[in-house]
């Protein structure tokens, strides 16, 4: 009965934690419980109740700490991805705008520049913008990896 209660309390912990420590925790509880059992029910209860409370409190604390870490990681990752994607989109828009609507570079052909030269300049502009966005994204803090 008690072992079923302890086992069910272990399910409050994350799966990864259970996979790693459930056997050891069960072993720990069994040692405590078996040591108290010969002294009677009262002694057993004096061991069981603190263990249950400890498991419950530890599980809640652990869940909360894990939750806050993953939230920070998620927020950082989303911010980095959003800003990086935004800068890349801006770069693409600028390049397209340059190539189609305003086209001062294309207008250069009127002043004697070859079309190949214009294409090379556009590619260089695009590369600079993509490089800048990649550099900016690399400056952002990375989400912490869970070991």
């Amino acid at each position: 009965m008690q072992s079923a209660v302890f086992r069910s309390l272990l399910f409050l912990f994350p799966r990864e934690f259970r996979a790693r420590f459930a056997d050891e925790i069960s072993d720990y509880i069994a040692l405590q419980y078996n040591a108290a059992q010969p002294a009677g029910r009262w002694a057993t209860a004096r061991v069981s109740v603190p263990i249950c409370a400890d498991l419950l409190i530890a599980a809640v604390k652990f869940r909360v700490s894990t939750l806050s870490v993953s939230r920070v990681a998620l927020r950082t990752a989303t911010t980095a991805a959003g800003l990086g994607a935004g800068i890349i989109c801006l770069a693409i828009v600028l390049v397209l705008f340059e190539a189609t609507v305003r086209s001062p570079l294309l207008a250069a052909t009127e002043y004697g520049a070859s079309e190949l030269d214009v294409v090379i300049r556009l590619c260089a502009l695009g590369a600079v913008l993509v490089g800048l966005s990649a550099w900016y994204t690399s400056l952002l803090p990375r989400p912490q990896k869970r070991r």
Partner: peptide, 11 residues
């Protein structure tokens, strides 16, 4: 240290 506190701290 109870089992919960001990093993979460070990983790």
């Amino acid at each position: 240290l109870g089992p919960g506190g001990l093993y979460t701290s070990l983790q």
